[in-house]
Amino acid sequence: MSDAEQPRRSTGDKIIRFAVVGLANTAIDLAVFTLLVSLHALPLAANLGAWVVAVAFSFAANSFWSFERDRAIPLHNAFFRFISLGALISLGVSSLSLALLAGVIGVWPAKIGGVVVAAVLNFLAARWSIEGRLVK
Rank of each mutant, 00 (worst) to 15 (best):
A110D: 01
P109G: 08
L39F: 11
A78M: 09
A72T: 10
G103L: 01
V53S: 10
V116P: 04
A126I: 08
L85M: 04
I130P: 01
G12D: 04
A72G: 11
F33W: 02
N122A: 12
L44P: 02
L124I: 14
A41M: 11
F82P: 12
A118K: 00
S66D: 06
V120H: 09
G103D: 07
W108V: 14
W65C: 09
R9D: 13
L48N: 07
A56R: 05
E5Y: 15
V116G: 05
V115G: 03
A24N: 12
A24D: 07
L35V: 13
L124P: 13
S84K: 02
R17G: 04
V93G: 00
T11C: 11
K111I: 01
N47M: 01
A119F: 04
R127T: 08
T34R: 06
I112T: 00
N25H: 11
S95F: 04
E5N: 15
R69K: 04
R17N: 02
L36E: 08
R9Y: 11
V115W: 02
L75F: 15
L134N: 10
G92E: 05
A24T: 13
A27G: 15
A118N: 03
H76M: 10
E131F: 03
V52D: 07
I105A: 04
R133S: 14
D13S: 12
A99Y: 10
G114F: 09
L101D: 03
R9Q: 13
R8F: 14
W65Q: 06
